[in-house]
Design a protein around this nucleic acid. Structure first.
Lengths: 214, 214
DNA sequence: TAATTATGGATAGCGACACTCTCTACTATC
DNA sequence: GATAGTAGAGAGTGTCGCTATCCATAATTA
């Protein structure tokens, strides 16, 4: 298949495909001449995946490349595919380390220990969480921090279901792909569901009706 | 207080404060001369909040403005503050309506009906969710869509806790503020916790150890 | 009081990012 | 043989979130 068909089948414009190839999200095609190359089904899948991570998952192109490289590389072990996926899918943030941040970081460590979670010290989610909790402190929302326990419990049961579902896939490659997809797209899914559930719950508790169109 | 102190107390650089004022995230100070103005505690709070929404919550400046305007406007009723907050906090996305999208939208409607949720037809989370589910379909991950039930259940219990916690705040203004903060910052908190829990669970199920530093 | 520094407001510029356009030397197809 | 498509590379574009500069004026300091 040539680039026009690749574009047609994925819905990605040709210039964008070329850009993604330059950025390494998609490998070059198999060369058949000075200005000719052939693309296969793997290109289609990989391009679709790239698009999903960037558009729906909201990942920076560089992070998407890392994740795609991970999936389509041979020689990964199932023991570190998840960790590596999380590294790739958590774009770096810069933060301010002040008192509130130190307290928040301690709170994160405490939570992880209390739940008996085994988490590598380098997991970037630690830092992201500490950032968010520190911000909540600075905004004077620390009286709500007991909600954190509920959040953690929720996350735990969710992760349990997810990991079990993923580990049922025998093929390591399919597993890696599913991990990346569900880690990246699970966030917006969960966020949307939370908003929908919030509105439904609020309608009940606060007595609002669902008729108003805001 | 003048702008230098405002900057010092919030940690936001003066040029950025000026930019935020231009963009309407923070109102102008009380004028006392041709080139003098006075700022108060509300400016401090509002600026801190703006910073949190943009930096940690990752909101576009325009969305943050909407949310802040909502919080600091008088004359909101508790019946629609949540709806309006959700509108403000869900940045618009463009999407492709194809077969997969139609199916996904139907799936969303079905889920909402099945759960007995009362959700306004215009809630932007409906569309975001349909987008994500359609993408999962296009990626051939629809065999995992039964996970959606778990996600929904999770979201429901979470929303329940959140709405009860928020409604305990008597003051309407404090309620509106808490809703905006927790809607925006809850997403990264939840996402981080999910990643941490995933790693912990994966270590157990897949037998990996937590010693490797990836 | 004179020099320095700060202020509010407006306009312009900057760097990152994700494309998008253009060009060239070819190749395929009608 | 004319037209359209192709790979690859470089430059250009639009948006976003700041950041720098400038000006007239006000406050602070020597």
């Amino acid at each position: 298949m040539r680039i026009a068909e690749l574009s047609r089948r994925t819905g990605v414009p040709i210039p964008t495909i070329k850009y993604y190839m330059r950025e390494g999200l998609v490998p070059p095609g198999e060369r058949t001449g000075p200005n000719q190359a052939r693309y296969g089904e793997e290109h289609v899948r990989r391009l679709r995946l790239a698009r999903a991570l960037v558009e729906v998952g909201g990942l920076p192109v560089a992070s998407a490349r890392q994740a795609l490289t991970l999936i389509f590389s041979s020689g990964i072990s199932e023991f570190d595919v998840l960790g590596k996926a999380q590294y790739a899918l958590t774009p770096p943030r810069e933060h301010t380390e002040d008192d509130a941040w130190d307290e928040a970081a301690a709170q994160v460590d405490d939570l992880i220990a209390r739940r008996g979670w085994q988490v590598k010290p380098g997991n970037p989610a630690r830092r992201t969480l500490a950032d968010a909790l520190a911000t909540l402190r600075r905004l004077g929302q620390d009286d709500y921090l007991d909600l954190l326990e509920t959040y953690a419990e929720t996350a735990e049961s969710l992760a349990d279901t997810e990991v079990r579902a993923i580990s049922r896939r025998g093929d390591l490659h399919a597993m890696a792909e599913a991990i990346v997809i569900w880690t990246a797209l699970g966030d917006p899914v969960l966020a949307s569901l939370r908003r929908l559930a919030q509105e439904a719950r609020a309608a009940r508790v606060l007595g609002g009706t669902a008729e108003e169109t805001a």
